[in-house]
Nucleic acid binder design. Sequence first.
DNA 1: TCTCCACAGGAAATTGGGGGTT
DNA 2: AACCCCCAATTTCCTGTGGAGA
Length: 446
Amino acid sequence: MPSFTDTSEIFADEQALDEDNHPDELPERSTELKALHQSLAPAARGAGANNVFLYGKAGQGKTATAKAKLRDLHYYAEQESDHLNLTTCYVSCEGRDLTTTYKLARYLYSELSGEAKPQGVGTDVVMDMLFEEMNEVGGTIIFILDEIDQLGSDDTLLYSLPRARAQGLVEDHVYPSVVGISNNLRWRENLNPKVKSSLYDDQILFSPYDSSQLRSILRRRAVEAFQQTDLVPVGEATEDQRDRALDTHEVSDSGEQHHFVSETLTEDVIPLVAALAARDTGDARQAINYLRKAAELAHSERSETVRQEHVRKAEQQIDREIILEALHDMPIQAQSTLCAVVIIELAEATPVDVNQIYTAYSRLLDETGGDLLTKRRLRDHLRNLDMQGILSGKKFAGGSPGGPSWRFELAIDTQVVLDVLVERLNIEEWQVNDLVKDYQEFEHDQ
DNA sequence: TCTCCACAGGAAATTGGGGGTT
DNA sequence: AACCCCCAATTTCCTGTGGAGA
């Protein structure tokens, strides 16, 4: 009988592997830290920081870098400077559902003033209130807008915030600036050129971690998270530690060699996790998730060590969870669109063009009784599913006039999708099977 | 080579709903 | 109750485009 216990053979401090546990040290990002330092340096001289844009894929330490550098700046403002009046305001646009200028302006206002969010007034009024409040606060005000791409093409605030001072929207004693952070590399391209140039004096690109960097990151986390796991400088190592070292490497920057010793992880665990994550997008968060999941699996098996097989299993589980979650949160019409593709997939007729999907989709909605969308909209949904990696779409040249046309097929496991869809849409599996037969006949007639 | 048409996808208008005030 | 503001999803309208067929 499994029982609950507050000790573990494996974990020393499980929280070290939490998502929101930002490390204080980022040796793999020293270049980016220096660049950000340059951009914020004018603030220390009381001149207002440059506007900076940090961009790169998810899990590359953008947020951690920004937070670390602001901590430095705060420290300087409090300890070493008597004339620097610094206010910083960090917002995660995604976490707080700040998807428009209106929502963001309200939020920033309430953060700055401590008042409740203004309600029932127009965007322009909220913006005025915000600028007014910035006058109240005064000094250097740095807004860190994380996941700024959530704002989509709504760039009003992004345009006025960085140039509030130049445009006379705030008084002379106020120095506002913006640190924008985005996962979406394409988003920046779509910005209005006027916004682009005013928003970003400087840009810092975070390129993906390679597997060797990921290994260093993972080792440092492992030392905190796991029992009997240490990084020991070569000079201080006992003979025993030297013999048991899983790996010996240079800890970034210091130039000093360290032994990595662990009784809990087998030798191949960290290299494997790092390789899996690097193969994908070099996402450190993902890598740490794999490691935590693998350790949890080992723990629940009452294994004393985390081994390669745990990592493999963890990868599978996590990938599946990600898909399930994505499918669950999806709007009903996107699910219907997906279901139409599943039907055609089951009829073994993929990849398939938009027109065919539309007919399958129409018949599906006859069964489920939902509202029928236009073809135009269906195309949007399909492209969306493609970008989420649930479908895979390719442009096929020739065959039809109008240039290359899109063909789609399912990019993930058919049965997993079908399970979720049957649960979420008002439809049974036998109905889906009927629709598959339907589609096969229809295809035959063509 | 020219014309025509179906397709992709941008832009603007519409719809319906949720917050709120007066 | 009447009204205002914002918003997401969708429809409507439209343009650019490249291959098919004359």
